[in-house]
Amino acid sequence: MNVFFVKDLCVHFGSKAIIEHVDFTVKKGSVTALVGPNGAGKTTLVRVLSRTLKPQSGKILYNDKDLFTLPTKQIAKTLALLPQMRFIPDGLCVQTLVEYGRFPHGGNNGTSRKEDRNIVQWAMAKTHTLHFRHTPLARLSGGEQQRAWIAMALAQKPKALILDEPTTFLDIAYQLEILELLRTLNKETGLTIIMVLHDLNHAMRYSDSIMIVRDKKLRSIGPSHDVLTRESLRMEFSIDSDIHWDSRNNCPYIIPHRQIHHEGAL
């Protein structure tokens, strides 16, 4: 069963192509990590899946239905986003933000029904944001803000979650905590997760499937040990590296050595 089915997707801004002829599927209950160098089109790709950017051509099915003809509020009941571009209104406190997560479920302000209130509490507890729930978002650190936004997305009680760089701004303990939390939610509730990650080791450890996006194209997709090899790291990321086995976490581990300058490239 596929959550997303993407066929011959093309996106361009004006005359500049950003994504060209991309096909892939995302399985229900899987964790997919999007990796690739800066400017490769990762954010554009997740924005299209998030329906916040309309592609010029191609087909996107979400649970076998056309993503761009479904009512957006209905999608929001099962699909939550953590976008990169967002604004923090002056004085908005954490709990209010998390309550907005109940909007697609009809609880107009997120506090009207007991069920809504319980879910908001649960989302804040899961992300350890309860103790600063009355603090304005603007006064929190980057990591605390990130957890508050994730709490908002969780309050939607989604079946699928798209995150654009969820670990950016977080210190290493919270990076692990967020990724562990996402993995736990995935295992316990079958939440499908698609996320853009920069750290390849995180991608290998916390995902079932890795997509490498570079130069407007989907270069490869599959389990980490198939997709991230010494050869592909050299080709797609321009690094010379060794890959070891992390026996404690049961996943491969990359140790990069140096940057390679391709002849004629860049």
């Binding site: 924005r47 998030s50 329906r51 916040t52 957006t72 509020k73 209905q74 999608i75 929001a76 009941k77 699909l79 939550a80 986003l81 953590l82 976008p83 990169q84 571009m85 967002r86 604004f87 923090i88 209104p89 933000l97 907005y100 997560g101 909007f103 697609p104 107009n108 302000n109 936004w149 908002m152 997305a153 939607q156």
Partner: peptide, 20 residues
């Protein structure tokens, strides 16, 4: 007002919450 509150989080976040 609730829709405007959500809209002020940014277009992408608002779409994610189901606001057209």
């Amino acid at each position: 007002p609730t829709r405007l509150n959500i809209l002020s989080l940014g277009d992408d976040a608002a779409t994610g919450l189901g606001v057209h």
